[in-house]
Every structure is written in structure tokens, then in C-alpha cells.
Design a protein around this nucleic acid. Sequence first.
DNA 1: GAAAGAAATTAGATTTGTCTAAAATAATTT
DNA 2: AAATTATTTTAGACAAATCTAATTTCTTTC
Lengths: 219, 219
Amino acid sequence: MNFTSSEENYIKAIYHLQQADANVTTNELAAELQTKPASVTDMLKKLKAKKLLNYERYQGFTLSNQGKQIALGIVRKHRLWEFFLVDKLKFGWDEVHAVAEELEHISSSLLVERLDAFLEHPKFDPHGDPIPDVHGKMESNRQVNLIDLPINKKAEVCAVGSQSTELLELLKHSNISIGTKIEVKKKFTFDHSLEIKLGNKVAFTISQQLAQALFVKPL
Amino acid sequence: MNFTSSEENYIKAIYHLQQADANVTTNELAAELQTKPASVTDMLKKLKAKKLLNYERYQGFTLSNQGKQIALGIVRKHRLWEFFLVDKLKFGWDEVHAVAEELEHISSSLLVERLDAFLEHPKFDPHGDPIPDVHGKMESNRQVNLIDLPINKKAEVCAVGSQSTELLELLKHSNISIGTKIEVKKKFTFDHSLEIKLGNKVAFTISQQLAQALFVKPL
DNA sequence: GAAAGAAATTAGATTTGTCTAAAATAATTT
DNA sequence: AAATTATTTTAGACAAATCTAATTTCTTTC
């Protein structure tokens, strides 16, 4: 199936906002796309009709699996073009975004695959973001500080910020180790503490200091 | 100023049809763009308002100088992308047209210039058509048989098909030599003879045989 | 748990590019 | 030069994507 540039922009924006926080709202999306909430609602209905979105009015929305695939295809194109612009056309990494926004809507999939081959199948774009392959798979190996992990995003602990016995003692007591599945449920502004959940266990809160010592890989 | 893809498609189509025959009609343009004459009229009015077209209703239309510049910019982008697709991405020369039709509407002029540099300023696209430079200038050195010269297109005689004394005698008598400015005013279907005009002199007709012996360069 | 406030949605209008059907103009034929 | 035919244009409608203003639904506060 084929989509308009406008539809693709909505899908991509929803995808990115959902990465940062699984609970995307109509207003957030409107702000992101520099449009009005009413326009967003119109498009949500259209995307639902095309089965790209799970959406019930007043109840919020998430991308369907099909929607996610479309989003990944657009992200793939965007990042491949960014790589091309910087690597081949000698653009600065800060000059490429606007141009890539246009190029990502070129529809030919043959073009994308030939471009990918020409660039020798790069795995990351000039900003370090991973480039999805034809099937939407990508290396999600950019580790981020737990403080920066979006709410409700499942991740895996992959590194700690120090090897001090004090930290290790606290980690052991909290049942956190390398490989632990982790998820942030809430962020408290007052002291920047986080409510987290390990696997399916009951949630508990950790301090800003501990969170900053933990590095995770989004799944 | 910025134009929509639709406007650009009209400008480009008018440009190409005007190359083939200076008298482009509403119906021809509609056929070329696979749309209806009424839609063409609508767009003609819009392009006139934007000063890209000389147009009076029922009286035909031609591109203004500004319109020609826009057209050349689009042709430049189209042919540069075609060159890129064939030379770098290993497309076949017959596969590139549709993709280039999409790519030619990407607006960034920085992109075009960087692409031109990356490709090392090619002068001709994979089909042998000349690529206009930033200022719209291009080598128009594809010589065509006088028989194929569009009506009302000014051209210059650049070669003859044989060196026989019979031909040279006729050419001398007709005042035609290399460098003569020439223009076809009418084509007669009956015997394929042509009415031609040399510079500002009075028009006269020549036979199919003579026309076929003359090669010209459109100006 | 009712009222106030915030967020989301609907209703109706606008713009762009297109269409069909009808009318106006130009070109051709007799 | 009048009549026929072909071309071009207008008038009015429609779909896509957007907007403003009004309304509905949800959330929060008291």
C-alpha cells in the first residue's frame, strides 16, 4: 500500500514520540508536527481506517504492528539518506535533517535497496542512530542512562557507572545486575527519583544517584 | 519562490512540448500530463498569476523567461538524478525515469549543487540529453535532422549528409551553408516537403530529400 | 461526588488540485 | 459568410489536508 507524505509524517512522529514515552497524546503530536489538535484527530481516524493505528476516541492511540513496520521503513530511508548526504555529498551532520525529511518520502523501494548497497549497508546514521534493515530490524546497542529511558520502555541493564563496592552493595540489595530487565514507571520531579520495575516483580523507587549509575539498552 | 510538485510538472511538460513544437495546445498538455483540458486551464491561470507563463485565454501560452528558468532547474535536477541512479546506484538507463520524476521535486538547491559536484559535473545524462548548469545553460550539441526539427524552432545548419556536387549546387542556389540560421514554418504531409525560413528572409519550400540531407543544431 | 479545568473531538469552512457538464470561442467546411 | 466541428474555458462539485469555534469527554480538585 502507498501513503501520502502527510500520513508518513504522522506515522513517523507517532513512532518517535512512542519511543520517548509510550503514552503519546493528541496535543503532544500536534505540537511535534506544528499543527492543531483537531487536525491530528482527523488524521488519527484516517490511520485507524488504514489499520496502522490502534485508536478509540478519547482513549489514546498506539501504532499497530503494521504501522510500526511502515514507521521503520520511513526511519530506514531517512537515516540512509542522512548517511549518504554526510558520507558522499559532504554535508555537515547538522545540515542534513531537513533534506532527509524530503528524501524519506520517495517511494521506490528499489531505490532504497540500491542506495543501501551503494553505501555498503551502514548500521548507524551520522547522529549515531541505528539504521533498520529491510525487515525493520536494527542494532539497538546505543546504551542510555537510566535517567533518560522513556517511561514504560522495556530495557536491559548493560553497564554500571562505577565499580565501587558501595554501588555494588546497593545493586545486590536491589536485585539489579547486568542483564536485568528494567522499566521506568514514573519520574518524580521533586528529587528526580524513579519508580522502576524489574521484570514482572513489584515496582519500587530508586534515587537519582543510583539511576545515573545505571546504563541500559532499550529493547 | 517555491512551487508545488504539480506546478513543477506542468512547467516541465510545457517546456518539453515547447521544445518539440513551439505551439503547445491545452489538449496536448492535458494528454501529456494524463489529465483533463479543464484542469490544464485551471493551472494555466495559476502559472500566469505567478508570472511563469505568457497566457491569454483562447490565445495559447508560452513559458515566460522566469518560467523557462524554473523549467531548466527542474530538468537539471531530473538529469543529475538520472546520472546518479545509473552511474552510482547501477540502475538500468530504462529504469530511472519514474524515480527521477520523484527526486526532481526535492527543493534544496544546496543538495543539487553538492550532488553535481559529487558526480563531477556531468554534461549529459544517461540518455544523452544535456544537463543544464546552475544558470540554465547547457551544451545543445545534439544535432538533429532538419526533418525532425520542431516547427518554429530556430536552429543553425551544422552538417550536410553528403558532399555530392549535386547537393552542394542546390545548397548554393538556396543560399544555405554551414552556420545558416534556419527555421521550419510548415510541414506538408503530402510529399513531406518543408516550408523553411533563413534568418529574416522570405520563406520558401524545400523537398524531403534536401531536408534529410541537412543536419541542424537547435538554438 | 459534583464542579471546574484540561484534553480531545466534532462541525463546518478553506485551499489545492482535480473532475464533469455546459458554454464560449476559434477553426474549418461548404 | 453561415454552419458545423473542434478546442478552450467556465461553473460548480469533490477529496485531501488543514483550520477555527463549539462541544463532548476525561481528569482533577475541592
